[in-house]
């Protein structure tokens, strides 16, 4: 959220209208990647790896990747005004911080010290 948007509003609008959303080709690949990750997640669930201590971190990383891809591509945050990024990631950070803090407080995560 910077100052210079207001004076240059007209210009900003043009710039905004002009940018192209990703095309069908890209969308197709995005869908495929999401699909593959989901298949891997479910497959791993049935393998011995599911008993490993790295299983949960692995799954969380995978779903974070999916989350990021959908937000950046399908919700076109990557191509959109940076204001929208601030409006989404700011609250998301606070929400994730709150979840993490609550899990520590209720001893669902191992103690730090």
């Amino acid at each position: 959220m910077s100052d210079h948007h207001a004076p240059g509003a007209a210009a900003a609008q043009e710039e905004h209208e002009e940018h192209e959303h990703p095309s069908w080709k890209q969308y197709k690949w995005v869908a495929l990647i999401l699909l593959v990750i989901t298949v891997v997640e479910v497959w791993v669930y049935y393998t011995p790896f599911a008993k490993s201590p790295y299983f949960n971190p692995f799954l969380i990383t995978m779903s974070a990747v999916k989350f990021g891809i959908v937000v950046q591509m399908y919700m076109h945050l990557k191509y959109d005004h940076k204001l929208f990024r601030a409006l989404f990631f700011g609250p998301l950070l606070i929400a994730m911080f709150t979840v993490t803090a609550l899990l520590f407080l209720f001893h669902q995560l191992p103690p730090l010290f």
Partner: peptide
Amino acid sequence: INLRAPGMTLM
């Protein structure tokens, strides 16, 4: 965010 008069920057 959206209805500020021209020149009314955030700061």
